[in-house]
Computed example of a mutant assay.
Amino acid sequence: MSKDNFTLTFSGSREPVTQSAYALVDACEKLGIIRTRCRQGKCGACQIRIISGDYEEIAPMLALTEKEIRNNAILPCVLVPLSDIEVEAWYK
């Protein structure tokens, strides 16, 4: 595994993910965690909860409230992984 390849883990399932735009949200869709709409961080349809891992925002997570952010909610459509990521489904 190179520094640009990581693993997304959700409920015991694993999916490879690269360090590139939309790779994380694509992996989440492939595992059936989310369905996306805008891919711009504005609609919140892809909201999930991060358990562990590091990421970088490529655009602001505009659809999240401060409370959701404090509770580890993320929008994978505007994030690039920097390490292996573990997530769980997040319901508002």
Rank of each mutant, 00 (worst) to 15 (best):
M1H: 11
S2N: 11
F6Q: 01
T7P: 08
L8S: 05
L8P: 02
T9H: 06
T9W: 02
F10V: 14
F10H: 15
S11R: 15
S11C: 12
S13P: 00
P16G: 10
V17I: 15
V17H: 05
V17Q: 04
V17N: 03
Q19E: 10
Q19M: 07
Q19P: 01
Q19Y: 01
Q19I: 00
S20A: 15
Y22C: 09
A23M: 09
V25N: 04
V25S: 05
V25R: 03
C28A: 15
K30N: 11
L31D: 01
L31G: 02
G32L: 06
G32V: 09
G32K: 08
R37N: 14
R39W: 03
Q40C: 05
C43Y: 04
C43V: 08
G44N: 07
A45K: 10
A45D: 10
C46A: 12
C46R: 04
Q47G: 01
R49E: 09
I50K: 07
I51S: 03
I51M: 06
I51H: 02
S52L: 12
Y55V: 11
E57H: 08
I58M: 15
I58E: 07
A59Y: 12
A59S: 13
P60N: 13
P60K: 12
M61E: 15
L62K: 15
E68S: 10
E68W: 07
E68F: 09
I69K: 15
R70T: 09
N71I: 03
N72S: 10
A73M: 11
I74Y: 01
P76R: 09
P76W: 05
L79S: 02
P81V: 04
S83C: 09
D84N: 14
I85K: 01
I85P: 00
I85M: 03
E86L: 03
E86A: 14
E86C: 10
V87K: 05
V87F: 06
V87P: 02
V87D: 02
E88V: 14
W90D: 07
W90L: 09
Y91R: 13
K92W: 08
